[in-house]
């Protein structure tokens, strides 16, 4: 890379298994992150966004039609880039520090 992008636009993202369950999670991420882009690769889906990516429990539950605790995200995730800044009962936030 020849230029250093500012913190707000260096991409962060997650790789998720492509599955029926995870479709709701992916849709929730797309809905809650305005600039999110989705790339399909064999068996997996990569969702990335500039600067920060948020996963909201309520958005996932609304699409899944059942309760979903944020720990369940561990069954979906393959990899990520960025820092996991916060992970609590309601939200998971991935962003760079700077």
């Amino acid at each position: 890379m020849t230029t250093t992008p500012s913190p707000s636009d260096r991409p962060v993202g997650v790789d998720l298994q492509e599955s029926e369950q995870n479709r709701a999670v992916i849709e929730a991420i797309e809905a809650d992150n305005a600039n999110a882009t989705v790339r399909h690769m064999p068996g997996m889906v990569r969702v990335q966004a500039p600067g920060r990516l948020v996963i909201n429990r309520e958005s996932v539950e609304a699409r899944l039609g059942r309760e979903w605790e944020t720990h369940e995200f561990q069954l979906a995730i393959i990899s990520y880039f960025g820092h996991i800044k916060d992970w609590d009962d309601d939200q998971i936030l991935i962003a760079w520090d700077r």
Partner: peptide
């Protein structure tokens, strides 16, 4: 490596 680590992580670690 180049995009995610050099372009992402190492910018943070430079601090």
């Amino acid at each position: 490596f180049e995009q995610q680590m050099l372009g992402g992580l190492f910018v943070d670690l430079a601090y």
